Computed example of a mutant assay.
Amino acid sequence: MRAPIGHFDDARPAPDCLDILVAPVADAVRAWQGSVPAEQLIHVDTEPEWADTATFVEHYGPELLATSANCVVVAGKRGGETTLAACVVLSAARVDVNGTVRRRLGARKASFAPMDTATGATGMEYGGITPIGLPADWPLLVDSAVVDLPYVLVGSGRRRGKLILPGKALAELPGAVVVEGLGQG
C-alpha cells in the first residue's frame, strides 16, 4: 500500500497493525466509528531517531511539514482542581496554552502537562502521543486548520510509527471540539 502523503516504505491500514500499536490506540482502532472507515487510518513505520520535525520531513518528504500535526497534553488548573486535555495543532504552529486553551478549559492557569503525567495518563510514549485513544472524558481541542486537511500525519502512540488519516476524522473523536486559532505561528 502507498501512503496518501509522504514517502514511506511500510504503510498499512491501522486495523492490520493492532499488534504494534499501544493498547489505548489499538482499542480505539478496534472500536472505530464515524464517517471515515477504520481502513482509512494508515499506519506508517518510521525511525524513532528521525522523530523531530526537521529530520522527519528531510527523510519522509517535505510536504509533511504542512500536513503533520502534534498532539500535546495540557493541564488546566482552577480552585485546586486539575483538568487534563489534549490539543492538536499543525506541527509548524504553537498551541495557545495561556489564551485559547485556558479559556476553553475554564482554568485560571494552563500549562503543558509534565512528561510523566502525559505518558502515564495516556498510556502512550512521549513524542508519539496521538489524539486517537485518549481518555474519552478528556477535552480534545483540534485546530480547524488540522481538520481542513485532506490527510494529516499524527503520532501513533509510540515514537516509532505514525498514523495518517483524513483531517475531518479528528473532529469526530470522543471529546473533540474544533477550535479556530488554537495554533499560532
Rank of each mutant, 00 (worst) to 15 (best):
V142R: 05
D10S: 15
V142T: 00
T119K: 02
V179A: 02
R78H: 13
V88T: 10
R160Q: 10
V179M: 08
D10H: 15
D16G: 10
A28Q: 08
D96P: 03
Y60R: 02
G183N: 05
H43C: 13
L134Y: 04
V25Q: 06
V25F: 04
L41P: 06
V101D: 03
I5N: 05
L140Y: 00
P24W: 14
G157Q: 03
A54H: 15
G61C: 05
V152T: 00
R102C: 15
I132Y: 03
V88D: 11
G34E: 08
S91N: 14
V177A: 12
C87L: 09
L163T: 02
D148N: 09
A69D: 03
L182R: 00
G34N: 12
P62R: 14
V74A: 07
P4E: 06
V177Q: 13
V88S: 06
W138E: 00
A86D: 01
M115L: 13
D143C: 00
S156W: 01
G79Y: 01
R30L: 09
A75K: 07
G99V: 11
T55H: 11
V178A: 00
L134H: 02
G161D: 05
T82R: 10
V178M: 00
T83A: 04
F8L: 08
E49D: 15
A26C: 11
P48H: 07
Q33M: 12
D10V: 15
G120R: 07
A38S: 12
L84H: 06
P62D: 14
L21H: 12
A136P: 06
L170T: 01
E39I: 10
L41I: 14
R78V: 13
D148S: 13
V89S: 06
P48V: 13
G61F: 08
T83Q: 08
G127Q: 05
V95D: 01
I164A: 03
S144G: 10
D52Y: 08
A66D: 11
D96I: 10
L18A: 02
P62Q: 12
R78M: 11
V146F: 02
T100Y: 03
G175M: 01
E58V: 14
H7D: 15
V177M: 11
V29K: 00
I42R: 06
R160F: 07
T67S: 10
R159F: 11
D19M: 11
A26S: 13
V95N: 01
A136Y: 03
A107N: 07
H59T: 03
V88K: 07
D143V: 00
Y60M: 05
A121I: 09
A3P: 06
R104P: 08
F56I: 08
V25N: 00
R160C: 06
F8C: 05
P135F: 04
T53L: 14
A107H: 12
P135I: 02
L153R: 02
V89W: 01
G127H: 04
G76Y: 01
R158I: 03
D45S: 15
E81I: 13
A92D: 14
A118N: 06
T53D: 06
L170M: 08
A38F: 14
D137F: 04
F56R: 07
A110T: 08
G128K: 00
V89Y: 02
L170F: 12
L105V: 05
P13S: 09
Y60K: 09
V22D: 09
I129F: 05
R2C: 13
T100C: 10
R30Y: 01
E39D: 15
D143G: 01
T46R: 04
A92P: 07
G128P: 13
G181L: 01
L105D: 00
